[in-house]
């Protein structure tokens, strides 16, 4: 299991809406946001590749999202 801290940047003002759509995802836990264009989240995925794929998918599928930046990556052998 890979647990990562990520910063997600969105178009101005879109962060709350993105947060709402991300909040439904079971492996994303939102931990904060600036209310406008930045979100902080903890993401858990099976592997580093899955994490990258998730980030790429977000960038591709959700045009409100401008960037996904990992700030911390941890591996849980479980």
């Amino acid at each position: 299991m890979v647990i990562a801290g990520v910063l997600i940047t969105t178009k101005p003002g879109q962060a709350p809406f993105v947060a709402a759509s991300l909040g439904a995802s079971p492996h994303v836990q939102l931990v904060g946001g600036d209310g406008s264009e930045r979100l902080a989240a903890v993401v858990s995925r099976e592997s580093g590749e899955a994490l990258e794929a998730w980030a790429e998918e977000l960038l591709r599928d959700d045009e409100r999202i401008l960037g996904v930046y990992p700030t911390f990556v941890g591996h849980d052998p479980e």
């Binding site: 801290g5 836990q29 902080a40």
Partner: peptide
């Protein structure tokens, strides 16, 4: 350990915020 990782990840992401 999971908790530790999650809290570390959250701390890091929040700092970046």
């Amino acid at each position: 350990r999971r908790e530790f990782l999650e809290s570390a990840a959250a701390a890091s992401a929040l700092a970046a915020l």
